[in-house]
């Protein structure tokens, strides 16, 4: 696998690490990360709604940063691990953000949910104690046509609380 990607012409070898698993693929340089995740890898939890950076439904993590996977070429995503909604479980348990989304009914049709969850979880990973404004702006780039927004805010708060409690349990007296 070469260090710097070859940009074609035609299909080129691409190595992606997705949810901890390495995939060796032959891709067209024009293929987006979203297309590859959904089409090649069958990870259809990531949705494509607009394909042009307007909606956030395709949000995944590149390293620890949430990105719109419809705007990333897969070939450019070889240097960092990728996490999708399917890879958010820890030890077989749903991520606290996922649990909170269920408890607070932070979805209706659910089509925006993967993106919302990835954005919210990314916030909590870097800021475990967010105020309401931080919660809102974390998902400001994630459209929800069903209008689940009020419940998404609630779920964000609940998830932060859950994370805080579990951290305290891990490190008592700190």
């Amino acid at each position: 696998m070469p260090e710097t990607p070859i940009y074609g012409p035609g299909r080129v070898p691409v190595k992606l690490v997705v949810n901890g698993q390495t995939h060796l693929l032959n891709l067209l340089p024009s293929e987006t990360l979203a297309e590859v995740l959904r089409g090649e890898l069958g990870l259809t939890g990531t949705k494509v709604v607009c394909g042009m950076g307007d909606c956030g439904a395709c949000t995944v993590w590149l390293g620890s940063k949430p990105v719109y996977s419809c705007l990333q070429l897969a070939i450019d995503c070889q240097s960092q691990p990728i996490t999708t909604i399917e890879g958010l479980k820890r030890n077989g348990e749903l991520h606290p953000v996922q649990q909170a989304f269920i408890a607070d009914d932070a979805f209706q049709c659910g089509y925006c949910t993967s993106g919302q969850v990835m954005s919210m979880a990314a916030l909590l990973e870097r800021n475990p104690d967010p105020d309401e404004e931080a919660i809102r702006s974390a998902v400001a780039g994630n459209l929800c046509r069903c209008g689940a927004y009020p419940k998404i805010v609630r779920a964000g708060k609940r998830a932060a609380e859950m994370l805080r409690v579990s951290k305290e349990r891990e490190a008592p007296g700190e």
Partner: peptide, 9 residues
């Protein structure tokens, strides 16, 4: 809910 929140739906 779990199907919706986990991407399995």
């Amino acid at each position: 809910g779990e199907e919706r929140a986990s991407g399995a739906a």
